[in-house]
């Protein structure tokens, strides 16, 4: 069967802020869950400046390893149309979070089952085509990590600040002083 040609990507631009982010978008873990972890960090550009208009999305398996996800990430009130948040029973596996004015983001989730990483997709004004990367919560003998030289590999491994807080910065471009994050292609 002849493949259809894909629709090209275009930048998310500067004005997605009232359309894509939603209340509770960063909260994959049920509220108050004792096993919740925080993954947070900054997005930086090639001058080392924080990027205040990036949008990050995360996708991960449930703690039991299930990869089917669940609807309800942006569950709505049928009367007002307002986003009322996840109901806390299903694990949707999906987060969406814009960076703040300081280029910082934070999500709260549960550790993924079966793999040591969260899949990350980065959008930003100035970025014509999104970028995929991975936030590894632990160093691992993983097919991707093993293939990378140490300096590159280190960009994918979140720093454990405490037992439940992991810092994962995204550097869009090598600026000489800091290694550029490893970005991925899925051919």
């Amino acid at each position: 069967m002849a493949e259809l040609a894909p629709t090209p990507s275009q930048t998310v631009g500067p004005f997605y802020g009232y359309a894509l982010p939603f209340p509770g978008g960063a909260d994959i873990a049920p509220a108050g869950h004792p096993g919740a972890i925080t993954v947070h960090g900054h997005v930086y550009d090639g001058a080392g400046a924080p990027v205040p208009d990036a949008l990050l999305e995360f996708w991960q398996p449930a703690p039991d390893g299930s990869r089917t996800g669940a609807p309800g990430s942006l569950r709505r009130d049928p009367v007002s149309g307002a986003v009322i948040g996840r109901h806390g029973l299903d694990f949707t596996g999906f987060a969406r979070v814009p960076t703040d004015a300081d280029g910082h983001y934070a999500i709260r989730t549960l550790p993924p089952g079966g793999v040591p990483y969260l899949a990350v997709c980065v959008f930003a004004r100035g970025l014509l085509h999104h970028l995929f990367t991975r936030a590894y919560l632990t160093d691992a003998d993983d097919p991707l990590l093993t293939a990378l030289e140490p300096r590159r590999r280190a960009t994918l491994i979140a720093i454990a600040e405490t037992e439940r807080v992991h810092r994962f910065d995204v550097r869009l471009q090598d600026n000489g002083a800091h290694e550029e994050t490893v970005f991925l292609d899925f051919p």
Binding site: D45, G46, A47, A49, V51, W59, Q60, P61, R67, T68, G69, A70, P71, G72, S73, L74, R75, R76, T92, G93, F94, P112, V115, Y117, A119, A124, R125, G126, L127, L128, L131, F132, P143, L144, A147, L148, R152, L172, Q173, D174, E180, T181, V182, F183, L184, D185, F186, P187
Partner: peptide, 30 residues
């Protein structure tokens, strides 16, 4: 785009077990 594009080539992932081969779902609640 000048300061917001990577200079390194993307790293190809051909792992059939990759999490990225599945994805989030949405429904009538959303």
């Amino acid at each position: 785009s000048e300061l917001r594009h990577p200079k390194h080539a993307l790293v190809e992932v051909r792992d059939p077990e990759a999490v990225e081969l599945s994805g989030p779902v949405f429904g009538v609640t959303d």
